[in-house]
Design a protein around this nucleic acid. Structure first.
Lengths: 174, 174
DNA sequence: TATTGTTATACTCTATAACTATA
DNA sequence: TATAGTTATAGAGTATAACAATA
């Protein structure tokens, strides 16, 4: 927990310039911190995303929420199962479409949402602590613009921090 | 591939402030771009990391390289297997310790390293394109400092660009 | 015929724990 | 006894495909 002298920790030289490695390390550290913070929430961080989406928008069915968050619909089922079992959300019938289930947060769910969101902010602050407040603003703004660029590139919404399939072709050539 | 109007892509409001989600999206976009770029390299991005580590340092055995890169030693075995099968590295006996195997790049491996590294730089540039050159410098510098903080926090080194932690992004924004 | 929600299955990747051969 | 490398296994997580009910 001690940041100790930041200078004492040296990054391996061959990774120092490796943007992918840097990103994965930050994400990893972030996930470590945040998953611990929201550990008692069913579904972890994604459960919180679902809860947040259910609370933020007006009526949305499972598939809409799933697509919005970039979650596979079959994964969404279990996620909502867990949240519903803990009575944080309810599946309500959609009067306009009897196939659909609208995800609504319960009062308990809204309370948890507030609590967990607050914890998350703390965890974020912990990870971004090496940066000054101004630098944090600049950093997250840059991050946001890069994300917009990524999404605009027509890539699929991304299901997780790790998803692409690895390239494994064997070859030997100069 | 057209960045199109960055402004036309709006981030879901409940994810806009979600640092974890932003990071996971950027990493995802980055992995999409880079894994395609180094697709024919055995082991993908981590194969490249191993190759780079083998080339950069003087003699290092598998375990040292694995620890340096934050890769599990059992994963390292297959990684080196693949690289060796493609004749990009060799496992050489360590005269000082008959248990150890020193990973050395072949000439072919060095050629691939240069080629793949160049491709990687291009892919990085593509992802960071929304930022000006100065902003990129500031961004990666901030990223580096955050990583140092994460590593100094005593967290396990994380296994790779695509690391196996669970879920994914997180949170919420209301 | 297409779509929502669900279930079951296969596949990928990681972590764990043995086992060997050395030290 | 501890360590380097290897192997096999179990687990978490995702994607895929099939299915029922409804549009």
């Amino acid at each position: 927990m001690e940041p100790s002298d930041a200078e004492t920790v040296a990054l391996p030289e061959e990774l120092h310039e490796d943007l992918g490695w840097l990103l994965s390390q930050v994400l990893h550290g972030f996930l470590q911190a945040t998953q611990a913070a929201v550990g008692d929430l069913p579904g972890g961080l994604r459960g919180l995303q679902v809860l947040s989406a259910a609370a933020s928008g007006c009526s949305r069915n499972q598939l809409e929420v799933a697509r919005r968050l970039g979650i596979d619909r079959s994964v969404m089922v279990r996620l909502v199962d867990d949240l519903e079992r803990s009575q944080l959300v309810k599946r309500c019938p959609d009067p306009a479409d009897r196939r659909a289930r609208i995800i609504r947060p319960t009062d308990t769910g809204l309370g948890w949402l507030r609590e967990m969101t607050a914890r998350l902010r703390l965890a974020e602050q912990h990870v971004l602590a090496p940066l000054t407040a101004d630098e944090q603003t600049v950093f997250t703004d840059a991050l946001r613009r890069v994300v917009v660029g990524v999404l605009a590139s027509g890539l699929p919404p991304a299901s997780g921090p790790c998803d692409g399939t690895p390239g494994m072709a064997e070859t030997a050539g100069a």
